[in-house]
Write a protein that binds this DNA or RNA. Structure first.
Lengths: 218, 218, 218, 218
DNA sequence: AATGAATGAGCATTCATTCAT
DNA sequence: AATGAATGAATGCTCATTCAT
């Protein structure tokens, strides 16, 4: 009885080891640049063993993407469901949540966001591809709900909430990628968090009905 | 000397032919998916000939990126230098300029933006890479100048102008990539332009000192 | 001791299960195409278990060949030993016997005949290979005996009986393989039996000393 | 002008070199056992070069099969069109023609016949597979015509000519494969030709209307 | 007795790139 | 200037087989 459980647990652990190794290698070399052998080496398994846990390179990689996305979904929902926060607070908490995920594992987040908007996605098996897409839909929907509520409550001007969610999410994605690009020629360290916060602040201020004063003067 | 000139001109024309062929193929198949043979075929040359005009696949691709970026620089500067527009008008004209470039050749723009924020960039030769980076700096700088002026004139709250420029540019990049991802699961056609305009509007309103009324009430 | 016997019996049964599973898979996918895992799955064992009963894939397959050959030997001897039939009747009964075996399990017969005349045989371990060869000798010898008797009795012209046996057997093998090949481009169903019967009839008529009339006129 | 021709000729020669190398390797190691590298080595090219001349391993092998089959078609038609021979002579000439092809390159003939009746054929691309099948049809048809004529002229009993052709061809194929199998346990050298001749003789005698005497007594 | 887990050894195929002509 | 021809160097993936448990 316990024996089955333990085996299952061990199996999941080995899966985990492979995923972590893969993450490391993908981040370092990119999807195309990473070879199954690299990953196997990092995981201290033989390449053939990888195939016992993942159907192929694509799905190994997709698993990582999905994991990352799940973390986003989770974080966003966590923010959305907090009873102690008003809508505006929640919206302000959003970039913090994004950045937390990013800061916990910046290379991986960047890698996944890159990959998500890459041609590679189109080559994935249909099921996997639609799972990834489904997740994406989910969190944009969650963000949209936040703004929808604000509009319903009369706090915000009436704009299409999904459009606003697209803006917020795109801003995050765009900044992550852009900050990475900038890093190559700009010695400033990581400005993601303050920049994203500023962006959200501006957007929020732009959407709110009464906000005439300089925030500093408030 | 007329002969030399003509030869030079012809050489540039052949280069052009190759670039156009390459653009077509890269957009259709992505960087990794495109083979030099595909490109050669499209250009009606032999693969070996491509190497007379471009050092290798990377640099051929980089040339296309640079071209695209030049168009952005140009567009942005065109907007910035228009004497007939106030700062706010210029800022509103920005997304239009971006979208114009995008709409003229959406696949290529998307492709280049993708590529620009991809691992591939890092594999480029130093000179090329820094040329691409230089361009990027240029147009973010141009956008920043606009906001800087607005701040100097007291229209805008005081925020770091480069940060704002980063936000604007990232929003554009993020939206282009995200809209493309969405296209796969959302039947809505191309919402890039209205969404970007909305984003810029919100940001502008957010940054402006006096803006208390619903735009509809204005 | 009853315990030992039962264990032995059970062991043989499991061997049987594996053989049947293997037969099914080999016939469906061919020798090269069949994987040990396929077979294990079909037998509802783990791949490793197969190796407890058979040394390797080759010998598992060879066992099937030998079984098939045993059936042929048996059938041929059955015909040869029937007291109620004259030599000519026995010779006519031969193709019926062959076809019976074929018709009982056409895919398997075809598969084994194919395999028997394939390169794979040469890779077998010596003992197995010579067992298979021995069987082959056996039934050609049995057929030869039939013709030898006919010659001795003065019914048949004097030809080397083994040569005639080779002809008869080769005709059977050739027809099985050829009919299978034809099946791919000829919609006619299975013509093996009538064609083989005709072949044997012609050969018999050709070898008999008095046979001047159209069989129809007899 | 001659330059193009020469290049074409050289290209065909290299193709020939590869085909010969492949033949050698396939015969020695079988289709599955032969690796592209083996073949490349034998041809003194790099493996990649093989792919400039043949789409893949299957088609390289199929080309050899087709060549072989063309020789059979040719040989058979040569016999059929000889004006100086009566039908019966032609039928007797058939095994000689077959054996000639066999004797010129026994290993290859055997290999091709094996392959033709193997599962591998089914995996081929449709065009190639149907070309091979088409050839097969052709030569059985040619043999059938011979017997049809004999029947029409009243020399032979009325049997379905295609069935007889199938018998003749199958006998040949069966004997080639069987003689090869026998070689492993029978020291007698190559008995293909006399055995095939005997087989054809018996069949012919069996099909002919007047043939009451021992051929020896004729 | 049975097997879950692991792997070594292969192998077909692709493609950017070079170079003699 | 252009290219036909060739290839080195990879790489994802498969599978028969082994062995500790």
């Amino acid at each position: 009885m316990g024996i089955e459980e333990r085996k299952e647990r061990e199996k999941m652990m080995r899966r985990r080891v492979i995923l972590d190794a893969a993450k490391k290698v993908f981040v370092a070399k990119g999807f195309a640049g990473a070879t199954m052998e690299n990953i196997a080496e990092e995981a201290e398994f033989s390449p053939a063993t990888i195939y016992l846990y993942f159907k192929n390179k694509d799905e190994l990689h997709a698993s990582l993407s999905i994991e990352m996305q799940d973390i986003f979904v989770e974080k966003i929902e966590e923010v959305c469901h907090r009873q102690d926060l008003g809508i505006e607070d929640k919206i302000k908490a959003l970039p913090l949540a994004f950045c937390e995920v990013y800061e916990r594992d910046p290379l991986n987040v960047m890698h996944v966001l890159r990959y998500q908007s890459s041609e590679a996605l189109k080559a994935l098996s249909f099921e996997i591809a639609s799972e990834i897409r489904g997740k994406a839909k989910e969190y944009v929907r969650a963000i949209a709900n936040l703004f929808e509520e604000g509009i319903r409550e009369g706090l915000f001007f009436e704009h299409h909430p999904v459009a606003i969610a697209d803006i917020v999410w795109s801003l995050f994605v765009g900044l992550v990628l852009w900050e990475d690009t900038k890093k190559d020629f700009d010695s400033r360290k990581d400005f993601l968090r303050p920049t994203l916060e500023l962006g959200i602040e501006l957007i929020t201020r732009g959407i709110k009905k009464q906000e005439c004063l300089d925030p500093g003067e408030r």
